[in-house]
């Protein structure tokens, strides 16, 4: 399991893009469209990163937390489960799963620091209750594979593990968590897509190395295009756009009780 992605629950749970892009009926009723849905998830991924910096956990914990959050919303609605509670709780759960446990009260402290707005504030009790709901919704599958390990191995293997290539491709991988790629594609293909983009950007010719890999380059290129499209679209996303998407939820704090 831990060693073999192909026998893991992660592999078995990979979804098609269409399955990931289903807006839950309750959210749709509130006027949330697919674009809003993606924006809110992106916003929450950023929120998780921000919290993670405060509580000082590493990128892999963030990546696992974001994956939990994204999986969660393929099954549950944002109307019933407030993303502002689900996101930090996913970080809380991921910190345990990745053996870097963060105390709930520390998270609560930083949530209050980040959000002055009362309606986004949650207490320890809310996080602990939500932790169990998330565990249940994830069907108790907690092991998540990430592109980072294969990224390092690939860069080494291709002889491209200089600082500039490593930093660029690593940063690209980080940004993939602003999208749903981790729910759809095997992590090593996401890593390859990031290397592909980075090498084009740095004008390094890796054609021969890529050809030697026994992977479907069409998939790698598709993922690369998705990432580039995301960057393209991202430039036009303003805070107001995110706020208007979030405000549609109305955020009834149903989940706290």
């Amino acid at each position: 399991m831990a060693a073999n992605f192909w026998t893991s629950s992660h592999y078995k749970q990979l979804l098609d893009q269409e399955e990931v892009d289903v807006v839950q009926p309750l959210d749709r009723d509130k006027g949330i469209n697919l674009e809003d849905f993606k924006l809110i998830k992106m916003h929450m991924s950023n929120y998780i990163s921000k919290l993670a910096q405060h509580v000082k956990v590493r990128q892999r914990v963030v990546a696992t937390a974001v994956t939990y959050m994204r999986r969660f919303y393929t099954r549950k609605s944002m109307t019933e489960y407030d993303p502002h509670l689900v996101a930090p709780t996913c970080l809380y759960l991921a910190s345990k799963a990745e053996e870097s446990t963060v105390q709930a009260r520390l998270l609560v402290f930083y949530i209050k620091k980040i959000y002055s707005d009362e309606k986004y504030r949650y207490e320890v009790k809310d996080i602990l209750e939500m932790e169990m709901k998330i565990l249940e919704a994830l069907n108790y599958y907690l092991v998540v594979f990430h592109p980072y390990r294969s990224l390092v191995q690939f860069l080494h293997d291709a002889g491209m593990n200089d600082i500039s290539m490593t930093q660029l491709s690593w940063g690209l991988v980080n940004d993939t968590y602003k999208m749903d790629l981790i729910l759809v594609h095997p992590p090593h293909l996401i890593a390859l897509a990031c290397i592909y983009i980075a090498s084009v950007y740095r004008e390094k010719d890796n054609t021969a190395w890529f050809e030697e890999l026994r992977v479907d380059m069409n998939v790698v290129k598709t993922i690369s295009m998705e990432i580039l499209d995301f960057y393209e679209g991202h430039r036009m996303v303003s805070d107001e756009r995110i706020n208007s998407a979030s405000s549609k939820l109305g955020l009834k704090p149903e989940t706290s009780r």
């Binding site: 053996e99 932790e131 092991v143």
Partner: peptide, 23 residues
């Protein structure tokens, strides 16, 4: 049991679940 210190599902339980769900 819930841990006394207000820290949710015990890491022991999390480890056990996460490993046994995979193997």
């Amino acid at each position: 049991k819930q841990s006394k210190d207000g820290d949710g599902v015990s890491p022991t339980a999390i480890r056990e679940i996460m490993l046994l769900r995979e193997i």
